[in-house]
């Protein structure tokens, strides 16, 4: 009954025309997919390494699923592609290991190759977001038990080798984002909020000048004397050493301003900062 063209005698509608268009296209595409699979029965080779330039150095990205031998082969190939070694000389390189869980052994192998091209490993990003500063540490330190090195994850390797000589603290000046995991070995002072689904893990204490809603793990290497403090302590989960504490309702409103969690008599207890 519309004023325009679509009278009952007109058999095609916008919908039926779309169906016809799609049907033809999809038949064609299905044939194409089948043909592709006939000629290449194996999945295409996954991306293994890529090197990109960034303002503060180079970023080396390693694919999550590529076998380690392929990563090393492709890396050497890429470095060789730039004929003059001087191109990389003195460059700082950030390693983005994605989510593959790179081991200490692998880092050693990688930096051995990089050293040959005059490249210094500046930092490592693992598990998509976990940042571990590597600068200035690698040169003096080798894993204490090389025969076990490949079994150790980077995190434990760092923990065992980079314990500072005395107490010190690191300031984290930007707020954490949801989904971010921040790992460190020293006491952390976070100036900002730790949102839900963010995670802070360190061997020292954690002090949050803001609201702690996510997961915080202090004394991660087993130190039960570590503490966790926050202006608003409404965590999803707290861990100190091997102890775990989950506040039953993290959105609970009635909490004190300034609270501190510590281990007492084998369990985590939360108290007001000022008694």
């Amino acid at each position: 009954m519309g004023l325009v063209a679509e009278t009952p005698s007109d058999k095609t509608t916008p919908a039926s025309r779309a169906k016809a268009r799609l049907k033809g296209l999809l038949e064609h595409e299905r044939a194409e997919v089948a043909e592709q699979e006939r000629s290449f029965p194996f999945p295409q080779e996954r991306f293994s390494v890529s090197i990109r330039g960034k303002s503060d150095g180079l970023v080396l990205r390693i694919g999550d699923e590529a076998p380690w031998a392929v990563v090393l082969r492709d890396l050497t190939q890429q470095l060789n592609q730039v004929n003059s070694h001087a191109f990389f000389q003195g460059a700082l390189l950030h390693l983005d290991a994605g989510g593959r869980g790179i081991t200490a052994q692998e880092i050693e192998e990688l930096s051995a190759i990089l050293t040959r091209y005059g490249v210094a490993l500046a930092s490592i990003i693992d598990n998509s977001s976990l940042v571990q500063t590597y600068l200035g540490v690698r040169a003096e330190i080798a894993p204490p038990h090389p025969e076990h090195a490949q079994l150790e994850s980077l995190a434990t390797w760092r923990t065992r080798n980079v314990t500072p000589p005395g107490p010190s603290a690191v300031f984290v000046r930007q707020p954490l984002r949801a989904g971010e995991v921040f790992r460190h070995t020293e006491t952390l002072v976070i100036l900002g909020n730790v949102p839900n689904a963010a995670e802070v893990v360190t061997n020292g204490d954690i002090l949050v000048f803001g609201r702690l809603r996510g997961v915080a793990h202090a004394g991660a290497s087993g130190n039960e004397n570590a503490i966790i403090g926050a202006l608003l302590l409404t965590p999803t989960q707290l861990r100190i050493g091997h102890h775990i504490f989950a506040r039953s309702n993290s959105s609970a409103a009635a909490v004190n301003i300034g609270e501190i969690a510590r281990v007492m008599d084998g369990r985590i207890v939360i108290e007001p900062w000022l008694k």
């Binding site: 509608t13 916008p14 919908a15 169906k19 799609l22 049907k23």
Partner: peptide, 17 residues
Amino acid sequence: KMVQQGRMMTPEEVLEI
């Protein structure tokens, strides 16, 4: 409403695909 007006595919048309 869009289906009645022929402006959205009917379930039969979807199932044809």
